[in-house]
Amino acid sequence: MTITTGPHPTRRLILQGVAGVALLGLGNLPFAPARAAANDKYPEEAFKQKSEADAIKALYGKTAEPSDKVKLDAPEIAENGGVVPISVTTTLDKVTSISFFVAENPSALAASYKIPDGTIPAVANRLKMAKTTNVTAIVEADGKLYSATKEVKVTVGGCGG
């Protein structure tokens, strides 16, 4: 989890960026089966991204728009940041995945769920939160991204130490 400490950090970052773009490019090739296969892998890169925007980009390669059809249920105040019950439901059609992001965690992406045909687009789980911050749920429906965000106040952080 350390930031690059080599003599040329910027150069390395640029190289990483290039590699990332190349990967995204591959994922976007027009033949669909390859895309599906790529999507079937554990999204390691997305989980490594620190900021929410980067994590969304790494996972989906596009940006989300807020939607009132995504309902995010999270507590106003979480007494224990180690266990914050968060759930999401949506009335959107053709949902293919639901992901949870915690903006100021060491890495923003917390969990990503694939919703195959026939599965109801609603998930409940429990996440860790380092401190008071926004929780965002992103629903991928019919190829587009929709989001809902809620701030959760954390009185004791979930990263121990």
């Binding site: 989980f47 914050v84 915690v102 992406l109 917390a110 969990a111 769920y113 694939k114 996440l127 860790k128």
Partner: peptide, 12 residues
Amino acid sequence: DVFVADWGTAVS
């Protein structure tokens, strides 16, 4: 497959 979860370290 009816449900696939990909988790990071932020899951409790």
